[in-house]
Simulated assay, not measured.
Amino acid sequence: MIKILKDVNANKVKQVCFGGAWYHKVMSIEYDFKGIMGDITLPMPYINRFKDDKEPTKLIDFDLKNLDVSSIYMGGHAKHESDVGLALGRAILNEKVTEGSAVYRPFWRYITDGFDDAGSYDLANGRNYSATILNDKNGIKNVYAMYHPSFSEYYYLPGDRLRMSLTSPKPDYLVLKIEVLEVSKLPYSVEFRKKYNLKETKDFTSPMMSSPGHGTNMLKTYKRVNAIDQVSNEGKEAIVSNTVIENAIWENCYLLYEENGIIYQTPMNEEIAVEMSCPNVKGFIVSELNIETGGQKITIRPKGILEWKNYLFYYYCRF
């Protein structure tokens, strides 16, 4: 049920640009939110930065090792930070693992000082994901997990319309859900699914991930992010590339809150959120946040509008 959250005196959290990626983020105020959800149509990722400066030979060239990665995710911050959603990753096509990224696949990264489920795949016993501790600072662990690429029912493609949500099934835990609202009708995606005989696209639910403070009455912030992450460049100056992530369409985005025992949805708009485009606003085409739905249309193109148009003309004309 949609209801506008009113009379909130919480301050908007000051945002600081983090180096090494191009990203557009919308971040909520601090409040006792119960989660976040939104409907998105996945963008077309024209990746154009590869290992050894190689040039792509097709729209999504997964025969090359990409150094730019398209990601679309939600996150929550209570005691620590979590980022969960979709990242353009490798796939198993024709019984071979691709060299580079080919499809959007679920991932989850959480920081915890509590339980972690780090470990490798164990498909025989139903553990279909791996989780790696990226670093451990005095018991505060940064854990990254991704589902095994053999499950092509969880391959999501440009033009797929999905509902993503991040909620707490129990105190101190989060769960990511991805619901398929409509399978893409873009010729590229239709032909891709047919050519590689992918399984019927299905909804996805992640394992519970440790996230202290979520599912309690602790103040929290939630966010949604569209990004070009850059391999081995975290925390450094973002590299200007010809990569373009075109037309990610957030139809809506709502924050969940409780009032008199009822869970309501309130639009994540400029009244209760702040947005930022890093590291340079000229690298983005972003529509105004919809006041009623929290919706927005986002294109990321670091080279800028003139270079982007010239690049796409060159790109399409050579194939």
Score class of each variant (00 low, 15 high):
Val274Asp: 10
Glu251His: 12
Leu123Gly: 00
Phe284Arg: 01
Leu181Cys: 09
Gly38Phe: 00
Lys25Phe: 01
Ala87Thr: 08
Thr132Asn: 13
Phe62Leu: 07
Ile272Ser: 08
His77Met: 12
Cys17Leu: 01
Met208Cys: 07
Thr299Glu: 09
Ile300Val: 13
Val13Glu: 15
Asn233Val: 05
Val26Asp: 06
Tyr315Met: 09
Tyr173Ile: 03
Asp203Ser: 11
Leu5Asn: 13
Asp172Ala: 05
Phe50Ile: 03
Ser184Gly: 12
Lys199Pro: 14
Asn9Leu: 08
Lys12Pro: 15
Glu95Pro: 05
Lys34Ile: 01
Lys141Tyr: 02
Glu271Ala: 10
Arg301Pro: 05
Lys223Trp: 07
Tyr104Cys: 06
Arg127Val: 15
Pro279Arg: 00
Ser287Glu: 13
Ala273Leu: 07
Phe313His: 12
Leu42Ala: 02
Arg161Ile: 14
Ile263Asn: 07
Arg224Gly: 05
Leu219Asp: 15
Asp83Lys: 04
Leu93Thr: 11
Phe50Lys: 04
Thr167Ser: 09
Ile140Glu: 08
Met164Asp: 06
Glu30Val: 08
Lys79Cys: 06
Glu153Val: 00
Ile178Phe: 02
Ile298Arg: 00
Ala91Ile: 12
Asn138Val: 05
Thr266Gln: 01
Asp52Tyr: 07
Arg193Trp: 03
Met27Gln: 11
Thr266His: 01
Met1Gly: 11
Glu271Ile: 14
Arg90Asp: 14
Asn280Tyr: 02
Val240Lys: 11
Tyr46Gly: 11
Asp7Asn: 14
Tyr264Ile: 03
Tyr154Cys: 08
Asn290Val: 06
Asp116Glu: 14
Arg301Ala: 15
Glu275Ala: 08
Pro106Ala: 00
Glu307Ile: 06
Ile140Ala: 02
Gly35Arg: 03
Glu55Asp: 12
Phe151Ile: 04
Thr132Glu: 15
Cys17Ile: 10
Glu275Val: 02
Trp108Asp: 15
Glu288Arg: 07
Met37Asp: 12
Gly235Lys: 03
Asn242Ser: 11
Ser241Met: 07
Met74Thr: 12
Glu258Leu: 06
Val274Gln: 06
Tyr104Thr: 10
Val69Ala: 02
Leu312Asp: 04
Asp136Val: 07
Val183Met: 06
Thr293Ile: 01
Ile60Lys: 02
Lys51Gln: 13
Thr41Ser: 08
Met164Glu: 03
Lys141Trp: 02
Phe319Cys: 04
